[in-house]
């Protein structure tokens, strides 16, 4: 019996020792985290990168949302911090400051392409042709009636505008950990508020009106788009906010709304006609280049024609490619090591 316990003790000691060894071991695999919108694209590139460059390991791609990813990114420099943060919005000044405080000074920005944000509803329900102002009136806690701010009285879409279907208002929007939320806020709510005949408001008051939403008809989704989809399936009246690529993969169950008369598609977003689109980014920790092998090659591969270019693999996966000149500029900036500072993003 004692023999077994001796063996067990030795094994325990071995594991404890490997704890110490882990600290000394250097990382040879690129670690990425962040936006769940960018995650599918980065994962695809990671896999293809692993296939095309057998000398490097396939990078690891985690999620956590843009905010979560950048927080990890700005935790500092070293083995157990990530190398690349995926972001579906630009880095904020506060985040750059946090990075700099933690010793991350070489933040390199890489824009990979564009994404559209769509309003989709169950395929069995009526068509929607919405304007930003409709969404604002449906979602804001307070709206203007006869020039005065009152609590939102609208229960159905056709009460907001007669052209909209007779369907109860229900919306599933991304929570604030998602980069998508910021674009939604800027391009839809802020735009809609301008057209909503609001009374004269101070800047703070306007800010409050455009950021306080009704709690009864709006659900904020902190998880993935599949969670939004599940909401739509449990309440068929819900209109969900999705990325264009997610809608594209689920066209059989979802129906997309036109915004300001434009149907979202690869073409309309690329041409800049569809109003609710945004650039997608990732941020590279310059301090880790050449420490963790393959980062520069990975970025170059990401921006290559066969990946992010027109007709590339990522376009098939739903990314809207940036024009070739734009990609070339992004790549040149990266290769020169152009660092993002607080002033750049103010």
């Amino acid at each position: 019996m004692t023999r077994y316990f001796l063996a067990a003790t030795v094994a325990t000691a071995a594991v404890a020792a490997s704890l110490g060894a882990a600290q000394a071991q250097s990382r040879d695999i690129i670690q990425i985290a962040g936006s769940s919108t960018v995650l599918p694209f980065s994962s695809i590139v990671a896999e293809e990168f692993g296939q095309a460059f057998p000398e490097f390991k396939t990078p690891i791609v985690g999620s956590g949302g843009t905010g979560g990813g950048l927080r990890q990114f700005c935790a500092g420099v070293g083995e157990n911090t990530i190398d690349i943060a995926n972001a579906s919005r630009r880095i904020r000044a506060g985040e750059v400051e946090a990075c700099n405080t933690a010793g991350v000074n070489k933040i390199l920005e890489v824009q990979i392409g564009y994404d559209g944000i769509v309003f989709a509803s169950s395929a069995q329900r009526a068509d929607f042709a919405i304007e930003p102002v409709h969404v604002f009136k449906a979602i804001a806690a307070q709206v203007a009636v006869d020039g005065k701010l009152v609590d939102n009285p609208y229960k159905k879409w056709n009460e907001i505008d007669a052209s909209l279907p007779d369907q109860p208002i229900a919306l599933a929007i991304p929570a604030s950990n998602h980069g998508t939320r910021e674009v939604f806020q800027e391009r839809v709510i802020a735009e809609g508020a301008k057209a909503a005949d609001l009374p004269e408001l101070s800047k703070e008051e306007l800010e409050k009106v455009t950021t306080s939403f009704r709690q009864d008809v709006v659900v904020e989704i902190a998880g993935d788009y599949t969670e939004t989809l599940a909401r739509l399936q449990s309440n068929q009246d819900t209109i969900g906010v999705f990325g264009l690529s997610f809608y594209d993969q689920n066209r059989d169950t979802l129906k997309v709304a036109t915004v300001s008369g434009v149907t979202p598609s690869l073409e309309t977003v690329a041409a800049g006609e569809y109003p609710v689109s945004r650039p997608l980014f990732f941020y590279v920790k310059g301090e880790h280049i050449d420490v963790v092998p393959g980062i520069a090659e990975f970025v170059e591969f990401y921006l290559s024609d066969q990946m992010a270019g027109l007709g590339g693999t990522l376009e098939a996966a739903g990314l809207i490619p940036a024009p070739a000149e734009e990609i070339a500029e992004v790549l040149a900036n990266f290769q020169e090591g152009k660092v993002i500072t607080v002033d750049d993003v103010k």
């Binding site: 490997s18 882990a22 071991q25 695999i29 670690q31 985290a33 995650l39 994962s43 990671a46 896999e47 692993g50 390991k57 396939t58 690891i60 791609v61 985690g62 999620s63």
Partner: peptide
């Protein structure tokens, strides 16, 4: 961080 996308079989318990 174990919910990351990992496209490899870990060789040791220290691999992702």
């Amino acid at each position: 961080g174990m919910n990351a996308f990992v496209a490899q079989v870990p060789a040791t318990p220290l691999d992702q």
